[in-house]
Measured scan of single mutants.
Amino acid sequence: VSFKITLTSDPRLPYKVLSVPESTPFTAVLKFAAEEFKVPAATSAIITNDGIGINPAQTAGNVFLKHGSELRII
Protein backbone atom coordinates (compact mmCIF):
# COMPACT_ATOMS: atom_id res chain seq x y z
CA VAL A 1 0.00 0.00 0.00
CA SER A 2 1.13 3.57 -0.60
CA PHE A 3 0.61 6.56 1.66
CA LYS A 4 1.10 10.24 0.84
CA ILE A 5 2.16 11.73 4.18
CA THR A 6 2.25 15.53 4.55
CA LEU A 7 4.26 17.34 7.23
CA THR A 8 1.80 19.86 8.69
CA SER A 9 4.30 21.71 10.90
CA ASP A 10 6.14 23.09 7.83
CA PRO A 11 4.36 26.00 6.09
CA ARG A 12 5.51 24.62 2.70
CA LEU A 13 3.62 21.35 3.46
CA PRO A 14 6.25 18.95 2.12
CA TYR A 15 5.10 15.38 1.57
CA LYS A 16 6.58 11.96 1.00
CA VAL A 17 5.01 8.94 -0.66
CA LEU A 18 5.78 5.72 1.20
CA SER A 19 5.02 2.26 -0.16
CA VAL A 20 4.97 -0.64 2.29
CA PRO A 21 3.58 -4.19 2.38
CA GLU A 22 0.01 -4.42 3.73
CA SER A 23 1.19 -6.45 6.73
CA THR A 24 3.63 -3.76 7.94
CA PRO A 25 2.87 -2.57 11.50
CA PHE A 26 1.69 1.05 11.29
CA THR A 27 4.09 1.95 14.12
CA ALA A 28 6.93 1.25 11.65
CA VAL A 29 5.31 3.54 9.06
CA LEU A 30 5.04 6.32 11.67
CA LYS A 31 8.66 5.86 12.77
CA PHE A 32 9.98 5.83 9.20
CA ALA A 33 7.92 8.88 8.17
CA ALA A 34 9.14 10.80 11.23
CA GLU A 35 12.76 9.93 10.38
CA GLU A 36 12.25 11.02 6.76
CA PHE A 37 10.96 14.42 7.91
CA LYS A 38 13.61 14.64 10.67
CA VAL A 39 11.03 15.01 13.44
CA PRO A 40 11.02 12.96 16.69
CA ALA A 41 8.94 9.80 16.23
CA ALA A 42 8.15 9.58 19.96
CA THR A 43 6.19 12.85 19.88
CA SER A 44 4.70 12.49 16.40
CA ALA A 45 1.30 11.21 15.36
CA ILE A 46 -0.32 10.47 12.03
CA ILE A 47 -3.79 11.86 11.41
CA THR A 48 -6.26 11.91 8.53
CA ASN A 49 -6.89 15.05 6.46
CA ASP A 50 -10.05 15.46 8.58
CA GLY A 51 -7.92 15.63 11.74
CA ILE A 52 -8.84 12.17 13.05
CA GLY A 53 -6.03 10.44 14.93
CA ILE A 54 -4.94 7.00 13.76
CA ASN A 55 -4.14 4.26 16.26
CA PRO A 56 -0.71 2.94 15.21
CA ALA A 57 -1.37 -0.50 16.75
CA GLN A 58 -2.66 -1.97 13.47
CA THR A 59 -1.32 -2.94 10.08
CA ALA A 60 -0.66 -0.54 7.22
CA GLY A 61 -3.28 -2.43 5.19
CA ASN A 62 -5.97 -1.75 7.82
CA VAL A 63 -5.09 1.95 7.96
CA PHE A 64 -5.23 2.16 4.17
CA LEU A 65 -8.65 0.49 4.05
CA LYS A 66 -10.09 2.65 6.85
CA HIS A 67 -8.52 6.03 6.06
CA GLY A 68 -7.20 5.97 2.48
CA SER A 69 -3.77 7.03 1.27
CA GLU A 70 -3.61 10.74 2.17
CA LEU A 71 -2.39 11.27 5.73
CA ARG A 72 -0.67 13.97 7.79
CA ILE A 73 2.10 13.76 10.36
CA ILE A 74 1.97 16.16 13.31
Rank of each mutant, 00 (worst) to 15 (best):
G51L: 03
P25S: 12
I74Q: 15
N62Y: 05
E35P: 01
F64S: 06
F3N: 00
V17E: 15
V1G: 07
A34Y: 15
D50F: 04
V20Y: 15
K66N: 11
A45S: 13
I46Q: 01
I54E: 02
I47L: 13
N55F: 08
K31Y: 08
V39N: 03
G51I: 00
Q58E: 12
L7E: 04
I46F: 15
S44Q: 00
G61K: 12
F26A: 14
D50H: 07
V63Q: 03
L18Q: 05
S69Y: 05
P40F: 02
V39L: 06
N49I: 04
A60P: 00
N55W: 07
N55V: 06
F64V: 04
L7V: 04
T43K: 11
S9F: 07
I52Q: 13
F64P: 01
P11V: 03
T59M: 11
G68L: 00
P56M: 15
R72C: 13
G53T: 14
F37K: 01
A34T: 14
S2M: 05
Y15H: 12
D50I: 03
T48E: 07
F37C: 01
A60I: 00
E35T: 09
F37H: 14
P14N: 11
A60C: 13
F64R: 07
P11Y: 03
L18N: 02
V17P: 15
Q58I: 04
S19G: 09
G68D: 02
E70P: 04
L7T: 05
I54F: 01
F26T: 08
S44P: 04
G68R: 02
S23E: 13
S44N: 03
G51M: 03
A45P: 03
K4H: 07
D10K: 04
L7A: 13
V20E: 00
I74E: 15
S44I: 15
K66C: 08
V29M: 08
T59K: 10
S44F: 06
A33L: 04
G53R: 15
N49S: 07
P25T: 14
R72N: 15
D10A: 07
P40Q: 05
H67Y: 04
K16Y: 08
L30R: 14
E70H: 08
S2Q: 07
S19Y: 07
G61S: 09
V20P: 00
L30Y: 13
K38L: 07
S23F: 10
G53Y: 13
P25K: 14
A57E: 12
